[in-house]
């Protein structure tokens, strides 16, 4: 619902969420499916260095949504 208000005001927003049906049903345009409800941009099974690299990859992928 927050994203919807931002979009209504013309502000580009990517909603990073795990429960995408909810975001979808609300009508948000840019949705990126997160890794988990508990850690949207985390990979706790990796070691910290690898996790950070993976997070940079994921963040880049989130940001890519803004280009379209």
């Amino acid at each position: 619902m927050i994203s919807k208000e931002l979009e209504r005001a013309g502000i580009p927003v990517v909603q990073v969420a795990n429960m995408t049906p909810v975001a979808n049903s609300v009508g948000v345009n840019r949705i990126w499916t997160s890794a988990s409800i508990k850690y949207p941009l985390g990979s706790p099974d990796l070691d910290p260095e690898a996790e950070k690299i993976e997070r940079i990859r994921m963040t880049r992928s989130v940001l890519e949504e803004l280009k379209e």
């Binding site: 927050i2 208000e5 931002l6 502000i11 580009p12 927003v13 795990n18 429960m19 997160s34």
Partner: peptide
């Protein structure tokens, strides 16, 4: 829905008053 909408509108105001081009909103 009322509270989320209210918070959303406050964020809109905040963003519009600043030099912000886009937002990444993470949800749990």
């Amino acid at each position: 829905v009322e509270n989320a909408t209210k918070t959303g509108k406050q964020m809109v105001k905040y963003i519009k008053e600043r030099d912000i081009d886009a937002v990444i909103l993470t949800s749990t």
